[in-house]
C-alpha cells in the first residue's frame, strides 16, 4: 500500500468569468455600428462580410470602421474613445 502524501497545487484557477450578454432594443433610426479591424491578415475581409450580414438583418444608421496598427497590442485610447462615442455596438475580428 502506497503511503499518501500531500502535494501543493501548482495551478491557478481561471478567474470567474462575468456574463456580459445584454439584450437591447434596436434604436428607431437603426443602430450605429462600429468596426475595429485588428490589422490581422484578412480581418478586413472578414469584417466586411460580417457588416454586410448585420445590414441584411438589422437597420443600420451608420458604420464607423477603424483599424489599429498593431495586431497584438490593445487599440489606442483615441480609437476606443471614438468607437465609444460613435457606436452602439462594436464588432472586432481576428484572423490568420
Amino acid at each position: 500500500m502506497n503511503q499518501k502524501i500531500r502535494l501543493v497545487v501548482p495551478e491557478a484557477p481561471s478567474p470567474q468569468s462575468v456574463d456580459t450578454t445584454e439584450t437591447r432594443a434596436v434604436a428607431k433610426g437603426g443602430i450605429r455600428l462600429g468596426v475595429l479591424d485588428n490589422s490581422k491578415g484578412n480581418a478586413d475581409h472578414l469584417l466586411k462580410f460580417i457588416v454586410d450580414g448585420v445590414k441584411a438583418l438589422l437597420p443600420v444608421a451608420s458604420v464607423v470602421s477603424l483599424r489599429k496598427d498593431s495586431v497584438s497590442l490593445p487599440a489606442p485610447a483615441e480609437i476606443l474613445d471614438r468607437l465609444a462615442a460613435e457606436s452602439d455596438y462594436v464588432i472586432t475580428a481576428m484572423a490568420d
Binding site: N2, K4, I5, R6, L7, V8, V9
Partner: peptide
C-alpha cells in the same frame, strides 16, 4: 480549497 491535493507517495 484547491491549494493542495492528496496523492500516492511514490
Amino acid at each position: 480549497s484547491g491549494a493542495s491535493i492528496e496523492a500516492d507517495g511514490d
